[in-house]
Design a protein around this nucleic acid. Structure first.
Lengths: 139, 139
DNA sequence: GCGGCTATATATAAGCT
DNA sequence: TAGCTTATATATAGCCG
């Protein structure tokens, strides 16, 4: 669509790439508006250029959240549930690490530290590195 | 872009609307792929036609969730509900505690433990309870 | 690097089957 | 109804200031 035909592959020249992005971004945003108006379609378009700048188009009379809800129902994929699960799992993982450390710290602080011998310290260190939970080092 | 010029307004004839949707859907999906490849852009495009059928394009090497996370950061808008925010906050909180403990443990393990005196232990304990991060207890 | 300017490449509205 | 075709409308690559 220009003076010359181009291959669809990454434009190596960064300044040409930027110019092309800017032009095509306008083009695709326009197309998104058009299809949404002409065909009564619900559209969500989000673009991030290499420079990091964001552009978006969401059809009128809807919201991105509506689109995403519908996306989940139509695709069977989960977004917030997946997100929710990821977060929950991360919390579990971190909490375990956390508990483990707290237990070890309690031991460290609760004992007469000078009474720990070398072997006990090694056990402790190993336990910490393994992130074991609930293991008791005798107190 | 055809035999005749058209106005950008809802196509009333439902079968024309469907045909136009189908054609333009292909066009915009192609455009989305092209800009993503040519310009190294991160793109998310979700379309629902009036018939309810969904089509999507997400740039390779990313996921819709990534795009949405980035969208939230860039736009300042929240997509996930309050529940997710709470989880995120909890993660932040726990991670801080965690980091704090790791720092202290590193100190404990890195030192000759018998050299810690009572006061140092008290400082340590206080720091842990306050969840302070990055504070140095002298090594 | 940015905003116009064309020549060309593409997309697509109508038609046709 | 769904494709295929073709004349036109658009998009845009390469340039220029």
């Amino acid at each position: 669509m220009g003076r010359g035909k181009i291959e669809i592959k990454r434009i190596e020249n960064s300044s040409n790439r930027q110019v092309t992005y800017s032009k095509r971004k306008n083009g695709i945003l326009k197309k998104a508006k058009e299809i949404s108006v002409l065909c009564d379609a619900q559209v969500s378009l989000i673009l991030f250029g290499a420079s990091g700048k964001m552009h978006e188009y969401i059809s009128p009379s809807t919201t991105l959240i509506d689109v995403l809800d519908r996306y989940q129902r139509a695709s069977g994929k989960t977004l917030w549930d997946a997100k929710h699960e990821n977060l929950s799992n991360e919390i579990d993982r971190i909490k375990k690490e956390n508990d483990s450390m707290q237990i070890e710290l309690r031991h460290l602080k609760g004992e007469d530290i000078t009474s720990l011998n070398y072997k006990e310290l090694m056990n402790l260190e190993e336990a910490l590195e393994n992130g074991l939970t609930g293991q008791d080092f005798g107190g």
